[in-house]
Nucleic acid binder design. Structure first.
Lengths: 120, 120
DNA sequence: TTTACAGTGAACCAAATGGTTCACTATCAA
DNA sequence: TTGATAGTGAACCATTTGGTTCACTGTAAA
C-alpha cells in the first residue's frame, strides 16, 4: 500500500480548502457545470476548473463533457479511508484520555485519603 | 461560526502531510520530545518544530517545555468536527448513489419488460 | 455564416509550504 | 566553569498553491 499515504495526502489536501468543500456540498445537492460553480463561488472559469481538477484527482468528483459543457458530479470515492483514519485516531485519543482520567481519579482518591489522615 | 471553516481548513491541512500524520501516530503511542520526533522522521530539529507548531495550531497536539526539553502530547481536539463533516458527506454520497441504484433497477425492469413484450 | 458561449492551456503572480543552515539562548552535567 | 545538549528564530530556498489574464478551440444559436 504505497499509494495509501499518497491518497490520504491528496484527499485531506483537497478537503483543506473552503471553496472545494463548498463545491462538494453543492454537488451533493445537484450536478453542476464549471460555469455554474464558477458563478456561485465568484471565480473565473479557469480558477474553478483547477479546483474541480483537484477534486477529480482525489476521486471525490467525476466529470463528463458533453457538447461544450462539462458536468461535475460526486465521485465514486466516499471517504471511507479518511473516515477510518480519523476514527482510528479518535480511539487512540480516547484511550489516552481515559488513562488520564483514571490517573486523575487516583490522585483524587489519594488526596481524599491524605485529608482524612490529616484530620484524625 | 466564522471560525468553523477556518478550523476545518487548518485541521485538514495539518492532516494532509504524511510526516504530521506519523507524528500523531507516534504520540498516540507515547509522548515525545522534539528531538525524539526529529530523529524518528530524519529531520532537523527546526523542521520538526515547525510540524509540531502546525499540529499545535490545529489543536491536535499540545506541548509543554520543562527544563530544556519540550514534551509533545496529543491535544484536546479529538477530530469530532472533522469526523462529523466526513460522516455528513458520506451520507450525502450514499443518498445520491442509492438514488442512482434505484434508477438502474428501474431501467433493468423496463428492459426486461421490453424484452418480454418483444418475444410475444 | 457570423456571433456568442463553455471550457482549456499557457504564462504569470504573490503567498504559503516544507525544508534547510546558522547563530543564539538556556539548561544540564562533569 | 566549561562543555555538551535541546530548542528557537531568522534568513534563505525551491516547490506548490490559489488565483488571475490572455489567446485559443470547439459548439450552439441566430
Amino acid at each position: 500500500m504505497v499509494h495509501y499515504q499518497a491518497r490520504l495526502d491528496a484527499t485531506f489536501a483537497a478537503l483543506s480548502d473552503v471553496t472545494r468543500r463548498g463545491v462538494l456540498e453543492q454537488l451533493g445537492g445537484s450536478d453542476a457545470s464549471i460555469t455554474d460553480l464558477a458563478q456561485r463561488f465568484r471565480m473565473t472559469l479557469t480558477g474553478m476548473k483547477k479546483h474541480v481538477s483537484i477534486l477529480e484527482q482525489a476521486g471525490l468528483v467525476t466529470t463528463e463533457k458533453v457538447g461544450r459543457v462539462r458536468t461535475c458530479k460526486l465521485g465514486l470515492r466516499r471517504l471511507e479511508e479518511e473516515a477510518a483514519w480519523i476514527e482510528q485516531h479518535r480511539q487512540l485519543w480516547n484511550a489516552r484520555f481515559d488513562a488520564l482520567d483514571k490517573l486523575v481519579e487516583q490522585l483524587k482518591r489519594k488526596e481524599k485519603a491524605d485529608a482524612q489522615r490529616k484530620s484524625r
